[in-house]
Amino acid sequence: MSDQFEVQAELREDMGKGASRRLRRHADKVPAIIYGGGKDPQPLTIIRKDLEKSLENEAFYSHVLTVNVNGDPQQAILKDLQRHPAKNFVMHADFMRVSAKVALKVNVPIHFLNEEACLGVKMEGGIIQHQATDIEVSCLPGDIPEYIEVDMIDVKTGDIVHLSDVTLPEGVTSTALALGEDHDLAIASVIAPKGGSVDDEEVEATDAGEEDAAEEDDGED
């Protein structure tokens, strides 16, 4: 993993909804919590602008972070993020401590490749639909991929890309597939263009050609 993230946090002593509102409105800080790892949960505060800047990087959501709590560095991942339903600003962040030797579950974003050059799009006029934007995987913290690539180049109209079609890095497994074949979820598909399938268009073109030929024969008679 190329990116290293460090979150500066302070222990929060003033608890409750009222205290959280004051933090957000007057101190421009975000209430947070870090838990797990066999230690007690610790309520935190984080400077809003610093957290929001980190959130602009996609890798921040799946990387192991260093949460520096009053000078005590703790390894953790961002487990949950609560945003205001209307204004979309961050209201609360949850961090879960991790151990280098203990596997964890984390959602990793999907990067779809060659969508414009996709066979079903370029040659058949189809449209790509995404059924998922990330994949939940299980692995050791040091093996968490920044993203997972799904190549769409050879996907035809009517084809569906499933979890089982995705190549995961060594040491990384899909939590859904671990439950059995019934959980082989769809990741993406290429659907026919609006108004009919490619086969329908070919039939229409053939019929039109036959009609033109018939009209020419009638004209000669």
Score class of each variant (00 low, 15 high):
Ile33Asp: 05
Ala178Phe: 05
His63Met: 03
Gly180Thr: 10
Gly120Ile: 05
Val7Thr: 05
Leu179Met: 14
Val166Thr: 03
Glu210Arg: 15
Tyr61Val: 08
Pro193Leu: 00
Asp218Thr: 13
Asp221Arg: 13
Gly36Ala: 08
Met152Ser: 08
Glu202Ser: 03
His183Arg: 15
Lys156Ala: 05
Gly196Phe: 10
Phe60Asp: 06
Val172Ala: 04
Ile148Met: 05
Ala205Trp: 09
Ile34Lys: 14
Val64Gln: 09
Ile47Thr: 15
Leu185Lys: 07
Ala192Gln: 07
Ile187Met: 07
Ala205Tyr: 11
Ser138Ala: 11
His162Thr: 10
Pro109Asp: 10
Gln8Val: 08
Glu202Leu: 05
Ile135Thr: 07
Ala178Gln: 15
Asn114Trp: 07
Ile187Arg: 00
Arg25Ser: 06
Asp182Glu: 15
Lys156Cys: 04
Lys79Phe: 00
Leu113Phe: 14
Ala214His: 13
Ile110Arg: 09
Thr157Asp: 02
Met96Phe: 07
Val7Phe: 02
Leu51Gly: 09
Ala186Val: 13
Asn88Met: 07
Ile148Ala: 06
Phe60Ser: 03
Ser174Cys: 11
Lys39Tyr: 04
Ile47Pro: 05
Asp134Trp: 01
Glu220Gly: 09
Glu136Leu: 12
Gln75Tyr: 06
Ala103Met: 06
Val150Tyr: 00
Val161Ile: 14
Glu202Met: 03
Val161Asp: 02
Lys87Trp: 04
Val166Ser: 03
Val108Tyr: 13
Ala213Glu: 13
Gln4Leu: 07
Ser54Asp: 04
Glu6Lys: 13
Tyr61Asn: 06
Phe60Ala: 06
Gly171Trp: 11
Met91Val: 03
Glu124Ile: 00
Ala186Lys: 13
Ala19Trp: 05
Val90Glu: 06
Glu216Ile: 15
His92Glu: 06
Asp72Pro: 00
Ile128Tyr: 04
Asn57Phe: 11
Asp134Arg: 13
Leu55Asn: 00
Ser20Tyr: 04
Glu170Val: 00
Leu177Gln: 11
Asp212His: 07
Lys49His: 12
Tyr35Lys: 13
Ala208Thr: 12
Ser164Val: 03
Glu215Gly: 08
Ser2Gly: 09
Arg97Ala: 03
Leu44Val: 10
Glu13Leu: 13
Ile191Val: 14
Leu78Glu: 02
Ala19Lys: 10
Gly219His: 12
Asn70Thr: 02
Gln4Trp: 01
Arg48Pro: 01
Ser99Gln: 08
Ser164Leu: 09
Ile77Trp: 08
Lys194Leu: 04
Leu140Asp: 14
Cys118Thr: 15
Leu104Ala: 06
Gly171Pro: 05
Met15Tyr: 10
Ala93His: 00
Tyr147Ile: 01
Ala132His: 15
Ala208Gly: 04
Gln75Ala: 12
Gly126Ser: 14
Glu204Val: 04
Leu81Tyr: 03
Lys101Trp: 06
Ala103Ser: 15
Pro41His: 10
Arg24Ser: 04
Gln4Ile: 06
Val30Ala: 06
Asp50Leu: 11
Asp207Ser: 08
Glu115Cys: 10
Thr206Trp: 09
Asp134Met: 15
Ala132Gln: 14
Ala132Asn: 11
Leu11Glu: 12
Ala117Trp: 07
His162Asn: 07
Asp218Gly: 02
His92Ser: 07
Thr175Phe: 00
Phe95Thr: 01
Ile46Met: 08
Cys118Met: 09
Asp217Met: 12
Gly18Tyr: 11
Pro31Ile: 09
Val150Glu: 01
